Computed example of a mutant assay.
Amino acid sequence: MTGTVTNQQEDITPDMLKSKDKPRVSWQVLFTLLMFFYMYLPILVLGVYSFNESAYGAGWEGFTWKWYLKLFGDSRVLTALQNSLTVAFCAVAIAAVIGTLMAVGLARYRFPLQSLYRGVAYLPLIIPDIAIAVATLVFLAVIGIPLSLWTIVAAHVVFCLAYVALVVSSRISALDPHLEEAALDLGATPVQAFIQVLLPELMPAIISGCLLSFVLSMDDFLIASFTAGTGATTLPMEIFSRIRTGVKPDINALSVMLMIVSGVVAFVAELLRYRSEQKRFK
Protein backbone atom coordinates (compact mmCIF):
# COMPACT_ATOMS: atom_id res chain seq x y z
CA MET A 1 0.00 0.00 0.00
CA THR A 2 2.83 2.32 0.94
CA GLY A 3 4.69 1.45 -2.23
CA THR A 4 1.65 2.36 -4.36
CA VAL A 5 1.37 5.79 -2.77
CA THR A 6 5.09 6.35 -3.21
CA ASN A 7 4.89 5.44 -6.89
CA GLN A 8 1.98 7.86 -7.46
CA GLN A 9 3.92 10.66 -5.79
CA GLU A 10 6.95 9.91 -7.94
CA ASP A 11 4.79 10.13 -11.06
CA ILE A 12 3.95 13.78 -10.25
CA THR A 13 6.75 15.76 -11.80
CA PRO A 14 7.62 19.45 -11.12
CA ASP A 15 6.44 20.35 -14.63
CA MET A 16 2.99 19.01 -13.78
CA LEU A 17 2.86 21.11 -10.63
CA LYS A 18 3.84 24.21 -12.59
CA SER A 19 1.16 23.53 -15.20
CA LYS A 20 -1.47 23.34 -12.49
CA ASP A 21 -0.44 26.70 -11.07
CA LYS A 22 -0.69 28.45 -14.44
CA PRO A 23 -4.11 30.07 -15.03
CA ARG A 24 -5.81 28.85 -18.14
CA VAL A 25 -7.92 31.20 -20.25
CA SER A 26 -10.51 29.34 -22.27
CA TRP A 27 -11.66 30.36 -25.72
CA GLN A 28 -15.12 31.12 -24.28
CA VAL A 29 -13.62 33.82 -22.05
CA LEU A 30 -11.67 35.32 -24.95
CA PHE A 31 -14.73 35.29 -27.18
CA THR A 32 -16.82 36.98 -24.47
CA LEU A 33 -14.22 39.69 -23.95
CA LEU A 34 -14.01 40.23 -27.71
CA MET A 35 -17.78 40.60 -27.99
CA PHE A 36 -17.91 43.07 -25.11
CA PHE A 37 -15.07 45.06 -26.71
CA TYR A 38 -16.90 45.06 -30.04
CA MET A 39 -20.20 46.22 -28.50
CA TYR A 40 -18.90 48.89 -26.14
CA LEU A 41 -16.00 50.36 -28.12
CA PRO A 42 -18.29 52.83 -29.99
CA ILE A 43 -19.77 53.96 -26.67
CA LEU A 44 -16.27 54.44 -25.25
CA VAL A 45 -15.24 56.51 -28.28
CA LEU A 46 -18.43 58.56 -27.98
CA GLY A 47 -17.71 59.26 -24.31
CA VAL A 48 -14.11 60.30 -25.01
CA TYR A 49 -15.04 62.66 -27.85
CA SER A 50 -17.75 64.31 -25.76
CA PHE A 51 -14.84 65.98 -23.92
CA ASN A 52 -13.06 67.03 -27.12
CA GLU A 53 -12.24 70.73 -27.44
CA SER A 54 -12.77 70.61 -31.20
CA ALA A 55 -16.29 71.44 -32.36
CA TYR A 56 -16.09 69.90 -35.84
CA GLY A 57 -12.91 67.92 -36.44
CA ALA A 58 -12.40 64.30 -35.51
CA GLY A 59 -8.91 65.04 -34.17
CA TRP A 60 -8.31 65.45 -30.46
CA GLU A 61 -7.58 69.08 -29.51
CA GLY A 62 -7.82 68.99 -25.72
CA PHE A 63 -10.04 68.16 -22.76
CA THR A 64 -13.05 70.33 -21.91
CA TRP A 65 -16.34 70.28 -19.98
CA LYS A 66 -17.92 73.08 -22.02
CA TRP A 67 -20.16 70.82 -24.11
CA TYR A 68 -21.83 69.44 -21.00
CA LEU A 69 -22.24 72.96 -19.60
CA LYS A 70 -23.64 74.13 -22.94
CA LEU A 71 -26.47 71.59 -22.74
CA PHE A 72 -27.92 73.19 -19.60
CA GLY A 73 -28.17 76.52 -21.42
CA ASP A 74 -29.74 75.14 -24.60
CA SER A 75 -33.45 75.96 -24.49
CA ARG A 76 -34.32 73.56 -27.31
CA VAL A 77 -32.71 70.62 -25.55
CA LEU A 78 -34.36 71.50 -22.23
CA THR A 79 -37.78 71.82 -23.89
CA ALA A 80 -37.33 68.48 -25.66
CA LEU A 81 -36.22 66.90 -22.38
CA GLN A 82 -39.31 68.26 -20.65
CA ASN A 83 -41.53 66.83 -23.38
CA SER A 84 -39.83 63.43 -23.16
CA LEU A 85 -40.20 63.32 -19.38
CA THR A 86 -43.86 64.33 -19.61
CA VAL A 87 -44.56 61.59 -22.16
CA ALA A 88 -42.62 58.95 -20.23
CA PHE A 89 -44.14 59.69 -16.82
CA CYS A 90 -47.71 59.88 -18.14
CA ALA A 91 -47.40 56.77 -20.31
CA VAL A 92 -45.77 54.74 -17.54
CA ALA A 93 -48.33 55.84 -14.93
CA ILE A 94 -51.25 54.80 -17.14
CA ALA A 95 -49.56 51.57 -18.19
CA ALA A 96 -48.74 50.67 -14.57
CA VAL A 97 -52.39 50.75 -13.54
CA ILE A 98 -53.87 49.07 -16.60
CA GLY A 99 -51.00 46.59 -17.03
CA THR A 100 -51.18 45.43 -13.43
CA LEU A 101 -54.94 44.93 -13.57
CA MET A 102 -54.60 43.11 -16.89
CA ALA A 103 -51.93 40.76 -15.51
CA VAL A 104 -54.01 40.00 -12.42
CA GLY A 105 -57.13 39.38 -14.49
CA LEU A 106 -55.33 37.00 -16.84
CA ALA A 107 -53.75 35.07 -13.96
CA ARG A 108 -56.65 34.88 -11.50
CA TYR A 109 -59.78 34.61 -13.66
CA ARG A 110 -60.97 32.27 -16.38
CA PHE A 111 -63.07 33.43 -19.32
CA PRO A 112 -63.64 32.43 -22.96
CA LEU A 113 -60.80 33.05 -25.42
CA GLN A 114 -58.41 33.85 -22.58
CA SER A 115 -55.37 32.48 -24.41
CA LEU A 116 -56.21 34.54 -27.49
CA TYR A 117 -56.60 37.68 -25.39
CA ARG A 118 -53.24 37.04 -23.70
CA GLY A 119 -51.52 36.69 -27.05
CA VAL A 120 -53.10 39.88 -28.39
CA ALA A 121 -52.13 41.77 -25.22
CA TYR A 122 -48.45 40.91 -25.71
CA LEU A 123 -48.36 41.58 -29.46
CA PRO A 124 -46.73 45.05 -29.08
CA LEU A 125 -43.62 43.27 -27.81
CA ILE A 126 -42.99 41.60 -31.17
CA ILE A 127 -44.66 43.96 -33.66
CA PRO A 128 -42.12 46.31 -35.31
CA ASP A 129 -42.24 49.91 -34.09
CA ILE A 130 -42.88 51.17 -37.61
CA ALA A 131 -46.09 49.10 -37.76
CA ILE A 132 -47.30 50.49 -34.41
CA ALA A 133 -46.43 54.02 -35.51
CA VAL A 134 -48.28 53.77 -38.83
CA ALA A 135 -51.29 52.04 -37.26
CA THR A 136 -51.54 54.69 -34.54
CA LEU A 137 -51.24 57.51 -37.06
CA VAL A 138 -53.97 56.04 -39.29
CA PHE A 139 -56.24 55.47 -36.29
CA LEU A 140 -55.81 59.06 -35.07
CA ALA A 141 -56.51 60.37 -38.57
CA VAL A 142 -59.69 58.27 -38.90
CA ILE A 143 -61.19 59.44 -35.60
CA GLY A 144 -60.07 63.02 -36.24
CA ILE A 145 -57.79 63.64 -33.25
CA PRO A 146 -55.12 66.28 -33.98
CA LEU A 147 -51.54 65.32 -33.30
CA SER A 148 -50.01 66.71 -30.12
CA LEU A 149 -47.86 65.71 -27.18
CA TRP A 150 -50.75 63.66 -25.79
CA THR A 151 -51.03 61.54 -28.92
CA ILE A 152 -47.43 60.49 -28.26
CA VAL A 153 -48.49 59.54 -24.74
CA ALA A 154 -51.36 57.45 -26.11
CA ALA A 155 -49.03 55.66 -28.52
CA HIS A 156 -46.41 54.99 -25.84
CA VAL A 157 -49.03 53.53 -23.50
CA VAL A 158 -49.51 50.72 -26.03
CA PHE A 159 -46.03 49.20 -25.73
CA CYS A 160 -45.45 50.29 -22.12
CA LEU A 161 -48.62 48.43 -21.18
CA ALA A 162 -47.32 45.20 -22.67
CA TYR A 163 -43.97 45.42 -20.86
CA VAL A 164 -45.55 46.15 -17.48
CA ALA A 165 -48.08 43.34 -17.90
CA LEU A 166 -45.36 40.87 -18.91
CA VAL A 167 -43.15 41.62 -15.89
CA VAL A 168 -46.08 41.58 -13.45
CA SER A 169 -47.53 38.36 -14.91
CA SER A 170 -44.19 36.58 -14.47
CA ARG A 171 -44.23 37.59 -10.81
CA ILE A 172 -47.87 36.75 -10.12
CA SER A 173 -47.50 33.28 -11.64
CA ALA A 174 -44.99 32.44 -8.89
CA LEU A 175 -47.20 33.59 -6.00
CA ASP A 176 -49.37 31.32 -3.90
CA PRO A 177 -52.99 31.82 -5.06
CA HIS A 178 -54.24 30.73 -1.63
CA LEU A 179 -53.02 33.98 -0.03
CA GLU A 180 -55.99 35.92 -1.37
CA GLU A 181 -58.37 33.06 -0.46
CA ALA A 182 -57.08 33.16 3.11
CA ALA A 183 -57.64 36.92 3.27
CA LEU A 184 -61.19 36.49 1.99
CA ASP A 185 -61.86 33.74 4.54
CA LEU A 186 -60.70 36.10 7.29
CA GLY A 187 -63.29 38.69 6.30
CA ALA A 188 -61.50 40.89 3.79
CA THR A 189 -63.33 42.15 0.73
CA PRO A 190 -61.90 41.38 -2.75
CA VAL A 191 -60.62 44.97 -3.00
CA GLN A 192 -58.98 44.76 0.43
CA ALA A 193 -57.41 41.41 -0.42
CA PHE A 194 -55.98 42.90 -3.62
CA ILE A 195 -54.63 46.08 -2.00
CA GLN A 196 -53.35 44.63 1.27
CA VAL A 197 -52.22 41.15 0.21
CA LEU A 198 -51.57 40.88 -3.51
CA LEU A 199 -50.39 44.41 -4.35
CA PRO A 200 -47.46 44.47 -1.86
CA GLU A 201 -46.22 41.18 -3.32
CA LEU A 202 -46.44 42.58 -6.85
CA MET A 203 -44.91 45.98 -6.08
CA PRO A 204 -41.27 45.04 -6.93
CA ALA A 205 -42.40 43.67 -10.29
CA ILE A 206 -44.58 46.73 -10.95
CA ILE A 207 -41.70 49.11 -10.21
CA SER A 208 -39.32 47.04 -12.33
CA GLY A 209 -41.75 47.04 -15.26
CA CYS A 210 -42.31 50.79 -14.89
CA LEU A 211 -38.58 51.52 -14.92
CA LEU A 212 -38.08 49.38 -18.01
CA SER A 213 -41.01 51.08 -19.76
CA PHE A 214 -39.68 54.50 -18.74
CA VAL A 215 -36.33 53.83 -20.43
CA LEU A 216 -38.02 52.55 -23.59
CA SER A 217 -40.32 55.57 -23.71
CA MET A 218 -37.44 58.02 -23.26
CA ASP A 219 -35.44 56.31 -26.03
CA ASP A 220 -38.27 55.99 -28.55
CA PHE A 221 -37.89 57.95 -31.76
CA LEU A 222 -39.89 56.18 -34.45
CA ILE A 223 -43.33 56.11 -32.81
CA ALA A 224 -42.94 59.62 -31.41
CA SER A 225 -41.95 61.08 -34.77
CA PHE A 226 -45.11 59.65 -36.41
CA THR A 227 -47.52 60.77 -33.68
CA ALA A 228 -46.03 64.13 -32.64
CA GLY A 229 -47.81 67.38 -33.34
CA THR A 230 -46.35 70.81 -34.00
CA GLY A 231 -43.97 71.79 -31.23
CA ALA A 232 -44.17 68.38 -29.55
CA THR A 233 -40.51 67.48 -30.04
CA THR A 234 -39.06 64.80 -27.80
CA LEU A 235 -35.37 64.43 -26.99
CA PRO A 236 -34.61 61.64 -29.53
CA MET A 237 -36.35 63.71 -32.21
CA GLU A 238 -34.24 66.75 -31.29
CA ILE A 239 -31.06 64.70 -31.45
CA PHE A 240 -31.99 63.27 -34.84
CA SER A 241 -32.74 66.74 -36.24
CA ARG A 242 -29.27 67.93 -35.22
CA ILE A 243 -27.14 65.01 -36.40
CA ARG A 244 -28.40 65.38 -39.97
CA THR A 245 -25.89 68.22 -40.38
CA GLY A 246 -23.11 66.38 -38.55
CA VAL A 247 -22.46 65.01 -35.11
CA LYS A 248 -21.15 67.70 -32.76
CA PRO A 249 -19.62 67.30 -29.29
CA ASP A 250 -22.72 68.68 -27.54
CA ILE A 251 -24.76 65.84 -29.06
CA ASN A 252 -22.06 63.42 -27.92
CA ALA A 253 -22.35 64.81 -24.40
CA LEU A 254 -26.14 64.54 -24.48
CA SER A 255 -25.94 60.95 -25.71
CA VAL A 256 -23.51 60.04 -22.92
CA MET A 257 -25.84 61.53 -20.30
CA LEU A 258 -28.80 59.62 -21.73
CA MET A 259 -26.87 56.35 -21.70
CA ILE A 260 -25.79 56.88 -18.09
CA VAL A 261 -29.33 57.63 -16.95
CA SER A 262 -30.75 54.70 -18.92
CA GLY A 263 -28.10 52.38 -17.51
CA VAL A 264 -28.83 53.47 -13.94
CA VAL A 265 -32.58 53.00 -14.39
CA ALA A 266 -32.08 49.59 -16.00
CA PHE A 267 -29.73 48.57 -13.17
CA VAL A 268 -32.26 49.58 -10.53
CA ALA A 269 -35.00 47.64 -12.35
CA GLU A 270 -32.83 44.53 -12.53
CA LEU A 271 -31.82 44.91 -8.87
CA LEU A 272 -35.44 45.08 -7.80
CA ARG A 273 -36.27 42.02 -9.88
CA TYR A 274 -33.30 40.11 -8.43
CA ARG A 275 -34.20 40.97 -4.85
CA SER A 276 -37.78 39.96 -5.50
CA GLU A 277 -36.61 36.58 -6.82
CA GLN A 278 -34.28 36.07 -3.86
CA LYS A 279 -37.07 36.89 -1.44
CA ARG A 280 -39.37 34.41 -3.17
CA PHE A 281 -36.92 31.49 -2.85
CA LYS A 282 -36.10 32.13 0.82
Rank of each mutant, 00 (worst) to 15 (best):
M1H: 08
G3R: 12
E10F: 10
S19C: 12
S19M: 14
S19Y: 13
S26P: 03
Q28S: 11
F37R: 07
Y38T: 13
M39G: 02
L41Q: 06
G47L: 15
F51L: 07
E53S: 07
W60G: 01
W60H: 08
W65C: 01
Y68L: 06
G73T: 10
V77P: 03
L81G: 08
A88L: 08
F89S: 12
A91S: 15
A95G: 08
V97E: 07
G99R: 00
L101H: 04
L101C: 01
G105H: 11
L106V: 04
R108I: 05
R108T: 03
R108E: 04
Y109K: 14
P112R: 14
R118N: 08
G119N: 09
G119R: 11
A121C: 11
L123K: 07
L125G: 05
L125M: 15
D129K: 13
T136W: 13
V138Y: 14
L140P: 02
A141H: 12
V142Q: 14
P146L: 05
T151I: 04
A155P: 02
H156F: 02
F159D: 01
F159M: 02
A162K: 13
Y163H: 11
A165V: 05
A165P: 04
R171K: 10
R171T: 01
S173P: 00
P177F: 15
H178I: 10
L186A: 06
P190Q: 10
A193E: 00
A193I: 09
L202W: 07
L202M: 07
M203Q: 08
A205D: 00
I206P: 02
S208Y: 10
V215E: 02
M218A: 05
M218G: 00
D219R: 14
D220T: 12
T227D: 03
E238I: 08
R242L: 11
I243Y: 05
I243A: 03
V247E: 01
M257P: 02
K279M: 13
